[in-house]
Design a protein around this nucleic acid. Structure first.
Length: 263
DNA sequence: AAGCGGTACAACCGCCAGTGC
DNA sequence: CGCACTGGCGGTTGTACCGCT
């Protein structure tokens, strides 16, 4: 007997989401918050698998998401975190406010991987490709596995300096905010160690509730405001605000939104 | 202008861990 | 303790888009 499917496959729609489906999902979550994903499709009037709803929300509809290409600093941070954490995309994403694991994973596979190969760096081990062939002959250097990127002594990737030296100076230049973010995370070895030890992420908890806590969001210098995000949703999907159901926000939620944008 | 190949990214799938009963 | 259920994660696929010939 196989595993039970996550949802009743019969009558469940697949493929790209329509604007109407997005609207229903957003309406439901904004009014009810994120509850049981399995029950959500029925309650929201969607013919979708609960899993599909969750993915759609977390990867695309969440208003606190940043859109657009990763900045150089973000990219560098991803490379650095990947060197330490391997393919733990959710952990990497937790350190990049407004970015999703799926987005980072895609960006890694389409851009960064190729970039590293071009630079002569193995994207899996973060070792120089020519050096790689040497280390394969001497397996005592334990960096061949993606699960073993932290050196035993201090949690620092042994080759991080090589990574940095392999990048052009301009690749390390970026906006001030991004540089600060990068520096603070890359230099915080205790943070990285805690990530490695599966400590709970420090960011992105805001969407456990219907309306993000203002102070949580203000901590993230590069996080778009609630209103910006709504604006983005409107721009992107060509909806009117009423189509999105933001008129269903109660007074309290609207007040939160207003204070949030005033700060 | 049409065909083709490459690229980017949204979405799906299967597995696993956590939790409640 | 074992089972069932749920949410989350990472790998993979499908497809729309874009540039080149």
């Amino acid at each position: 007997m196989g595993r039970q499917p996550c949802c009743d496959k019969l009558g469940v729609k697949k493929g790209p989401w329509t604007a109407e489906e997005d609207q229903k999902l957003i309406n439901f979550i904004l009014t009810n918050g994120q509850c049981c994903w399995r029950a959500l499709p029925k309650l929201a009037g969607l013919r979708r698998c609960g899993k599909s709803c969750r993915l759609r929300w977390t990867n695309y509809l969440r208003p606190d998401l940043k859109r657009g290409l990763l900045s150089e600093a973000e990219e560098q941070l991803v490379i650095d975190l990947h060197a330490r954490l391997g393919n733990r995309w959710s952990k990497i994403a937790a350190r990049l406010p407004g970015r999703t694991d799926n987005e980072i994973k895609n960006h890694w596979n389409t851009h960064i991987k190729k970039k590293l190969v071009k630079m002569g760096i193995d994207p899996v081990t973060h070792e120089p490709l020519n050096k790689q062939s040497k280390t394969e002959q001497s397996p005592s250097h334990g960096h061949n596995s993606a699960d073993n990127h932290i050196s035993e002594n201090d949690g620092t990737a042994a080759n991080s300096s090589e990574d940095n030296s392999s990048t052009t100076p301009t690749e390390n230049c970026s906006t001030t905010d991004d540089s600060i973010l990068l520096d603070s995370i890359c230099n915080d070895e205790s943070l990285l160690t805690s990530l490695w030890l599966d400590e709970p992420p420090l960011a992105d908890d805001s969407w456990n509730s219907t309306v993000p806590a203002a102070e949580t969001c203000n901590d993230q210098t590069s996080l778009p405001s609630w209103e910006d995000s709504i604006a983005w949703l409107l721009d992107c999907q060509d909806f009117g605000i009423h189509d999105f159901g933001f008129d269903c926000l109660n007074d309290n939620e609207l007040n939160t939104t207003n204070t949030y944008t005033k700060q």
